[in-house]
Write a protein that binds this DNA or RNA. Structure first.
Lengths: 248, 248
DNA sequence: CGAGCGGTTGAACAAGATCAAGGTCCGTGG
DNA sequence: CCACGGACCTTGATCTTGTTCAACCGCTCG
C-alpha cells in the first residue's frame, strides 16, 4: 500500500531482466540484450482481485499473459452452463495460448487470488521471435508443453479412478510449488472442492470424500484448504504405473 | 501401380504446390514463391502400412509429419500398459507437435490404414518461419488449434456421459470427413471399438452398446465398421448444450 | 445474530465397468 | 475348397464406483 503513495501503480513498468521468474518464464535462455528487447514488448503489468476475469471466452485475442504473482483457473463452459476447469496456473505460467488459433479467446481465465500478470501483445511477440531465434524456439516449446500437459490430463480423465486423480493432482501441485521455492508438502489450496472436481472430472462430494480417505490413512492432513502431505510416497505409489514424468 | 514402373516410388518428391490438401494443411495462405520454399524443406513422403508406427513415445523428435493420405491414431501409454488414445488424425493434419517441448516424442503415432505422410524437419520449419511470417503465424495457429482441440476433449471426458461422447465423436468425424470431400453421413470407421473407447474414456462394451442403442432409435445404422448417420440432427440434439463450435 | 457459502458425511441410486458367453468375419494352412 | 483359430464385436447378468439427494456443520460477512 505504501508503494502506491510513492509510485502510482499503473505506471509501474515491469521488467523481465530483474524478474525472479526469469528462469521459469518466457525469458529462459535469453542474453542481456535479448532480455532488454523482450522487456520493451511487455506492457505494464495488470493487477487483478480474487474472482476477477483476466479474459473471457469469446473476447478478441490480442495478448498472452504471464503470471507474475497469484493463481488462476482457466475454464471452458458450454451453453447449458456446464463448466470444465482446464487448468490451474501459477507464477511463471502462460495463459491465452488457445486464443491464437482463431483470434478469439477459447476459455475464461479467472484469478483465484489477488494476482499480477504481464501482458504480452502477441503480434509483437511474433515479430520479436523472428529477430531472436532462441525466443521463438522457447515459445514453440512452451506451446508444445501445453499440448503435452493436456495429453496428460486426458490420460487422467480417461483412465484413472478417483483416488488416482486426486493423488496425481496433489502431487502435481506439490511439484510445481516446490519448483517455485515453496514448501512441497505443506500448502494452501486456492480453489474450492467444486473447482478441483471440475478439473478432475469428479463431483465435489467425491473430492471431499477422497481427501477424507487419504487423511484417515494418514497420508495427508486436511484442514479446510490447508493440505499437508505426510506420506507423499504413498500417493506416488498410488499412481505409479499410470503416469510417467509429469511436465509443467 | 503403373506409376511404380515409371518412377520409383522412393524418389517421388512430394510438393505442396500441387497437393490437393494445400488449403487444409500447412501451406494455407502462402503465395507461389513461399510455397516453393516450403517444398524445398519437405522431405520426400514416407509410406506406412496399417499397424506401423510412425514414431514412438521416447524417440528423439526431429520432424513433424503431415498426413497426405490415410488415418492415424496417437496415444500415450503408461508403464502398466494402460493406453489412452489422444487423437485420430486424417489427411492434412499434423502429428508430433508434442515432441517440440522436450525434443522427445511424447506419444506413439500408429497408422490405422496404409498411409502416406510428409516429413517436416522441425528446425528447418523454424528457420523458414522466420523468413515467411505468414508461415510462422499459421504454424502458431496450428499449435493453438491443437490446444483448443485438447481442451474440448477434456470437456468431453470431464463432463459428458457415454451417449453424448459417442454422438460428439461421430459428428466430429463426420464433419472432418465432409470438409475433405467425403460423404458426411456414410463412412467407414478406421479404428476398433476398443480404440474408440480408449479415446472417449469408455470400455469397448459401452461403445458397442451405445452404437446399438443409436441404431435401435433409428439415428444411425451400424454394419460392423460401416456407419451411416440417418438422423444426424438427433445426434446434434443430444449434444446441444455441451459443445460450442467444434474445431479441427 | 442470522443468512449463506463451502465443506463433510450418510444413504439410496444409476451409469458404466466387469465378467461371461456366443457370434461373425477373415486369413492361414491343410 | 473347407476347416480352424483368432481378432473383433455383441449382448446379457452382475457388480462397483461415483453420483445424487439430503442433512448438517462451521465459518464469514453483512
Amino acid at each position: 500500500m505504501n508503494d502506491q503513495t510513492l509510485i502510482p501503480l499503473h505506471t509501474l513498468k515491469v521488467s523481465c531482466s530483474n524478474c525472479s521468474l526469469r528462469e521459469l518464464c518466457l525469458p529462459v535462455g535469453l542474453n542481456r540484450e535479448e532480455l532488454a528487447q523482450l522487456d520493451a514488448v511487455i506492457r505494464q503489468s495488470r493487477r487483478l482481485k480474487r474472482g476477477e476475469f483476466l479474459f473471457r471466452s469469446g473476447e478478441n485475442f490480442k495478448s498472452l499473459y504471464a503470471i507474475r504473482t497469484g493463481f488462476f483457473k482457466t475454464c471452458v463452459s458450454s451453453q447449458d452452463g456446464r463448466e470444465q476447469v482446464t487448468g490451474f496456473l501459477m507464477s511463471g505460467e502462460l495463459m491465452g495460448l488457445d486464443g491464437i488459433s482463431s483470434s478469439v479467446h477459447g476459455c475464461d481465465a479467472i484469478a483465484l487470488e489477488d494476482s499480477e500478470v504481464c501482458e504480452l501483445p502477441f503480434s509483437r511477440m511474433e515479430s520479436l521471435g523472428r529477430d531472436i531465434p532462441s525466443l521463438q524456439h522457447h515459445f514453440f516449446r512452451l506451446m508444445s508443453r501445453e499440448i503435452v500437459r493436456d495429453q496428460n490430463v486426458m490420460l487422467l480423465l480417461g483412465n484413472m479412478k478417483a483416488e488416482e486423480r486426486l493423488a496425481a493432482f496433489l502431487l502435481n501441485l506439490s511439484q510445481r510449488l516446490s519448483s517455485r521455492g515453496f514448501a512441497a508438502n505443506d500448502f494452501v489450496l486456492r480453489m474450492s472442492r467444486e473447482e478441483i472436481g471440475s478439473f478432475l472430472g469428479l463431483k465435489l462430494e467425491t473430492v471431499s470424500r477422497t481427501l477424507s480417505k487419504f487423511q484417515q490413512q494418514g497420508w495427508i492432513t486436511v484442514d479446510h484448504k490447508h493440505i499437508q502431505l505426510v506420506l507423499p510416497e504413498q500417493l506416488k505409489e498410488l499412481i505409479s504405473g499410470c503416469v510417467h514424468a509429469n511436465g509443467q
